[in-house]
């Protein structure tokens, strides 16, 4: 139930004269006393008290002026209550009172000033902007209906704009030209009641900016321009050319862009725009030559930076403006032209060679300058001299393309031409000597010795060649000598390779590596590089160390030292085992050092004079001969079992071994080395070491030794590596004395003698040719005494480590020398002996009784070579390689002659002999030599 609008009042007026505006009555008042009441907005809620009711009669009066814009409708809620009980006798009734609108509000603009812009030359009716206004009177009522109108325009004149009366949109009504009026100001009126005369109006301002477009072509201030400049000079502001343009200043529509239509083909000039003045600045950027051209006639044009507006673009016509530059003549000094000249010569060109003639020019005449004196200016290597009158240039020195002053094959120097007379001018020219390279340098190997890890042994080899292409990389690296069975070279890149061992071992390898350049020029073995010096030196050391190492690793374990075959010591050859693979050498487990003097000393032994001190303990290696290798044991079953076997023969044969070891590793391979055995052998070692890695200090000493191949020079360098921490040498303390000595030698340390209360060590010297000047190894037949010191006869009770080696070349193997009677006194250890030449051993025989001799011989199984030295059967296949090893540990009653051992007392001699990879046809009876 509801009540429709029932009453109305007018805003802004005193409506009280119309009271009561309404009256309410209940039919209950006939039976009950009733009190009427009202509530709601305008009564008991703000605005309060506008309406009141008479409680008895129910008449409702309005008491105040109302504002429709504040409260457009009042809702009066009417009640009829029992006057005594106050109970509502009727449901409440709502009486709505509407406030009638009057036009009491003007239009209000959204902005005080409206601004907009439009490009000049725009089309008619283009929308410029929209004016917005509102009216607070009753919506959709005439009192709030606004009409817009342009009241005025500034600048005046024809109306440029038109206003939409109802929407307030301002449109373009005429052609705009910014260059005429860049902006307009309009006064716009908004009136309600649809613009009727009784409406209320408001005014606003509209500013319209006219945007510039490039509709004007630039022009030059003058119809022609001219300037002058001296020849051979430059100018950054020779002339200013004023441009004129009606478009908006400092915009791209206004800024001029100058260009040459003709006359500047050689780019002598350029014009840049001064953006502040719109002037073109003429610059001379290349020296002008009066003798070449006295006047430059240029035609210049101008346009704007911005493109022309489409409305005028088709009207543009390029017009040229003449610009004349006069060149002034000046007196010029001589000059080299061209400023540099290139001469090509071969690197082999000799001194006094006439390179060519380089003369200065008289610029004014264009002829060769006649009044000048030539001289050489900057000439860092002083290669040139010049004829002061003719400018003829001659080589003053032998040129070297590898000189530090030669860059990219070119050497540069300066030639000066100085005028005679009081006022002197100097012209400078550059001569470039382009040197054609020749292959006059061998590649050199730059490989530092590195510690070679047993599990990943490798050495990076790099090479370089002072010659350039095509005489440099790629280099070809080659291994020479025996270790090719163990070592391979893997190419890394054009100038380096990796030397890798697949089965590295505790043995000494001497590896000789050569490198060839791209043109086949090889690093000569007789012209070792600096890098090779170190190798050579270490190679020498290796020769020194081989016997030591071998003695440590191969000694039969029968001796007292055998018990210590763990940890850091050498592991001994298992006593009396036959055919077993000898564990690789671990220092400390071999039989303790024994004096061998008693088996070496007798000077009365057959064979002649052994007492030349210089020959004592000489290990002699023949050229290319395989002396020792990483393989030390044999698979021959039953070898080394016979006590006393070959004792004397082995020793006596020592000297002859050399003669029998002409074979090389190549021959090994060709003879059919049991590679399976080798692989298995070294693999087993590797596995064992792998298991022991954590418990083993990484300070094993590893000497790598290899032998050159056939035809390689004698005494070629070897390689020696030592595994250990670079910064921590304490590991040396964990080594046994022998191995420690090895390590110290490897490290270049001064070797500490074993405890010796009697005598110092024999001097251990290593003598090489001057490594700086010439490290060429001697030709075949030359002997290099690595240890040149004559050994001193050790006194009784001393221990001597013999580290003397002699490299002996020559294809002729010297006949074996009988060994002296080893009945010596004192302790003497001869670790390895190879003899090919002069008497090799001579020690004081009056020494202690213990002798340990370890010997290895590797060589072709030429029975004839061995015959007489070793009492072994003939070998059917002469190409077979035999490795024999003997350990002789006689007691004090060793026979007096090593060459003819007295086996009657064989119980005092332990001889272990092994043959490595015997020929297939080699009888096993080799071990049965009595």
């Amino acid at each position: 139930e509801w009540i429709k609008f029932a009453a109305a009042c007018r805003e802004g007026e005193d409506n009280s004269k119309r009271n009561p505006i309404a009256k309410i009555r209940s039919d209950c008042e006939e039976k009950h006393p009733i009190t009427y009441s009202i509530s709601g907005v305008g009564i008991d809620r703000a605005p309060y008290g506008i309406f009141v009711v008479n409680p008895r009669t129910g008449e409702i009066n309005i008491t105040s002026i109302v504002d429709r814009e504040v409260t457009p409708v009042f809702v009066i809620r009417c009640f009829a209550k029992h006057s005594v009980t106050g109970i509502d006798l009727e449901p409440p009734l709502e009486l709505r009172v509407r406030v009638l609108d009057i036009n009491d509000n003007p239009p209000i603009f959204a902005q005080t000033v409206f601004t907009g812009s439009i490009e000049e030359s725009s089309m008619d009716n283009t929308l410029v902007m929209k004016i917005i206004a509102s009216d607070a009177d009753e919506p959709n009522h005439l009192n709030s209906k606004i009409a817009f109108k342009i009241e005025s325009q500034e600048p005046s004149g024809p109306p440029m704009f038109i206003m939409n009366k109802y929407t307030g949109e301002l449109h373009l009504a005429n052609y705009l030209d910014r260059e005429q009026h860049s902006s307009y100001t309009l006064v716009v009126k908004a009136s309600d009641r649809d613009g009727a005369a009784d409406g209320i109006s408001s005014l606003c301002s509209c500013n319209v900016k006219v945007i510039d477009v490039n509709d004007n072509f630039p022009t030059l201030a003058q119809s022609s321009f001219s300037a002058s400049i001296s020849e051979n000079s430059l100018s950054s502001d020779l002339l200013r050319i004023q441009a004129l343009d009606a478009d908006e200043e400092f915009t791209d529509n206004w800024l001029a862009e100058f260009f040459f239509l003709s006359g500047n083909e050689d780019n002598w000039f350029e014009i840049v725009t001064d953006r502040a003045t719109n002037q073109g600045i003429l610059r001379v950027i290349k020296e002008l030559n009066y003798e070449y051209l006295q006047t430059h006639s240029l035609i210049i044009g101008v346009r704007n930076v911005a493109a022309f507006h489409h409305s005028v673009a088709r009207d543009f016509q390029m017009s040229g403006t003449p610009l004349t530059i006069e060149v002034k003549n000046v007196i010029e000094p001589p000059r080299f032209h061209p400023s540099s000249v290139v001469f090509s010569v071969s690197e082999s060109t000799r001194v006094n060679y006439v390179v060519g003639t380089y003369t200065a020019i008289d610029e004014d005449t264009g002829a060769i300058a006649s009044n000048v004196v030539y001289s050489i200016g900057r000439d860092p290597a002083a290669w040139f001299r010049i004829n002061q009158n003719t400018g003829e240039i001659t080589l003053n020195k032998v040129i070297d393309r590898e000189s530090i002053y030669v860059i990219n094959g070119q050497y540069r120097a300066e030639v000066l031409a100085i005028t005679r007379g009081v006022t002197r001018y100097t012209a400078t020219g550059t001569i470039v000597l382009s040197i054609q390279d020749i292959n006059d340098n061998c590649p050199t190997i730059n490989t530092e010795l590195r510690k070679v890890c047993m599990h990943s042994p490798s050495v990076i080899i790099t090479a370089k060649d002072r010659d350039g292409d095509p005489y440099g990389p790629p280099f070809t690296f080659s291994i020479h000598g025996e270790p090719q069975t163990t070592w391979i070279i893997r190419s890394i890149n054009a100038s380096s390779a990796e030397l890798v061992s697949q089965n590295i071992d505790f043995y000494i390898y001497r590896i000789y590596i050569s490198v060839r350049d791209n043109q086949g020029r090889r690093s000569s073995s007789t012209t070792l590089s600096g890098a090779a010096i170190g190798l050579m030196f270490l190679g020498g050391l290796i020769f020194v160390l081989i016997p030591i190492l071998m003695s440590m690793s191969d000694c039969c374990g029968c001796g007292p030292g055998a018990a210590g075959g763990v940890g850091t010591g050498f592991e001994p050859v298992p006593e009396c085992t036959e055919g077993a693979i000898h564990p690789w050498g671990i220092e400390g487990a071999q039989p303790e050092d024994r004096d061998v003097s008693h088996i070496l000393a007798p000077t009365t032994a057959a064979g002649g004079d052994f007492c030349e001190p210089s020959d004592i303990y000489t290990n002699t290696y023949g050229g290319g001969g395989v002396v020792a290798s990483g393989v030390e044991e044999t698979t021959g079953v039953g070898y080394g079992t016979g006590t006393g076997y070959g004792t004397a023969g082995g020793i006596s044969g020592t000297g002859e071994v050399k003669g029998s070891i002409g074979g090389t590793i190549k021959e090994y391979r060709e003879g059919g080395v049991n590679m399976a055995f080798l692989d298995n052998y070294f693999s087993e070692k590797a596995f064992v070491y792998a298991d022991e890695d954590e418990g083993r200090p990484a300070n094993d000493c590893l000497l790598i030794y290899d032998h050159e191949g056939v035809g390689t020079p004698v005494g070629s360098v070897g390689c020696c590596s030592f595994i250990g921490e670079d910064t921590d040498e304490t590991y040396l303390d964990t080594l046994g004395p022998k191995f420690k000595t090895l390590a110290e030698i490897c490290l270049g340390k001064e070797i500490e003698p074993f405890p010796d209360v009697n005598l110092p060590w024999p001097c251990v010297n290593v003598t090489f040719p001057n490594p700086e000047s010439d490290l060429n190894l001697p030709p075949p037949g030359t002997t290099i005494v690595v240890n040149g010191c004559a050994p001193m006869p050790p006194p009784v009770g001393t221990t001597t480590v013999v580290t003397e080696n002699t490299y002996t070349s020559g294809s002729t193997i010297q006949p074996p020398r009988p060994m002296p009677d080893p009945l010596l006194h004192g302790n003497m250890t001869v670790t390895e002996t190879y003899t090919s030449g002069s008497p090799s051993l001579c020690v004081d025989p009056l020494r202690a009784s213990n002798v340990v001799v370890t010997e290895r011989v590797v060589g072709p199984a030429s029975a004839s070579d061995l015959r007489g030295m070793l009492d072994i059967p003939d070998l059917a296949d002469g190409s077979n390689v035999i490795v024999t090893e003997r350990v002789i540990a006689p007691n004090s009653r060793l026979p007096t002659s090593l060459s003819i051992p007295d086996l009657v007392d064989g119980s005092n001699v332990v001889v272990t002999e092994r043959v490595f990879r015997p020929a297939s046809g080699m009888p096993g009876s080799l071990i049965n030599i009595p």
């Binding site: 009540i3 029932a6 309404a22 009734l93």
Partner: peptide, 25 residues
């Protein structure tokens, strides 16, 4: 019933009462 009368003015400025009743919508 609960009645309400509203005073209205005609074009001549004469007032007259108009009665409204509750109506069902």
């Amino acid at each position: 019933g609960f009645h309400v009368k509203v005073k209205e003015w005609d074009e001549n400025g004469m007032a007259r009462w108009k009665t409204f009743r509750r109506q069902k919508r």
